[in-house]
């Protein structure tokens, strides 16, 4: 009896494995996880008809569909109208396309393609673009990181923090360039924001503190030392 059950289970699994790709092909989505995630959302037929072509298009353009599915999940969870989700997806696709162009320009197509195999890398760059970091500064950041995700993550995190703190991106990039020339570990970059906070307490203009950091970072082997040289 148990043996018969096992045979039935194997047969069922085989049938599912045969049917699933066929079903996916009928929907046109090749990414299994993306397909399953979309299924779990239980979209209505009209919604499917409008969302699935966008995912198909993203796959054709070789954009990371996982990223887009997350956006759909977020939109559905927040009960955002379909039109807005569609618009957000189209905007995200444009951002991702832009991210790829920047990475290929900075690292070249071969290294760029390798770098973008990880969805986290796409996410990081897309987040910075969406927060309003300009193309030129994004390109400089990617060139400075030179394919190191840690450098991109930490330097990008500082650039974003300074951008949100209303320090102009050009000044921020000068600071980041100076930090990358120093011996300061990249995961300490985020501490730089505390120098600006201290400057505000002591009524030192932002431009003056920025200049001190740019001037002294290259001489510093740790953030603590940079702190002593600039305060």
């Amino acid at each position: 009896m148990a043996k018969r059950t096992l045979v039935c289970a194997k047969l069922s699994l085989g049938i599912i494995l045969l049917i699933l790709p066929a079903a996916m092909l009928s929907g046109g989505i090749r990414n299994v996880q993306a397909y399953e995630a979309l299924n779990r959302l239980q979209l209505q037929k009209t919604e499917q008809e409008r969302i699935i072509p966008l995912i198909e298009q993203a796959e054709e353009q070789e954009l990371p569909t996982d990223y887009l599915i997350l956006r759909i999940q977020e939109g559905v969870a927040k009960k955002i109208p379909l039109q807005k989700i569609e618009a957000a997806l189209q905007q995200d696709m444009a951002v991702l396309e832009s991210a790829r162009t920047l990475v290929y320009t900075a690292l070249g197509p071969v290294r760029g393609e390798g770098f973008l195999k990880d969805t986290a890398h796409w996410n990081r760059i897309a987040t910075l673009i969406k927060e309003g970091i300009g193309q030129q500064h994004m390109l400089e950041l990617l060139q400075l990181a030179d394919g190191s995700y840690d450098q991109l993550r930490h330097a990008g995190g500082l650039l974003l923090a300074l951008h949100q703190w209303e320090i102009d991106d050009r000044t921020s990039m000068h600071i980041i360039k100076s930090l990358t020339q120093s011996e300061i570990s990249s995961d300490e970059y985020r501490n730089v924001i505390t120098l600006f906070q201290e400057a505000l307490s002591r009524h030192i203009p932002v431009s003056e503190m920025a200049e001190r950091i740019i001037r002294f970072a290259a001489e510093s082997h740790s953030f603590a030392q940079l702190q002593r040289l600039t305060r």
């Binding site: 703190w165 209303e166 600006f196 906070q197 307490s201 932002v206």
Partner: peptide, 12 residues
């Protein structure tokens, strides 16, 4: 405790 939401304002 220091909180600075932007460069223009800081509470200590």
């Amino acid at each position: 405790f220091t909180y600075a939401p932007t460069r223009r304002l800081q509470v200590h």
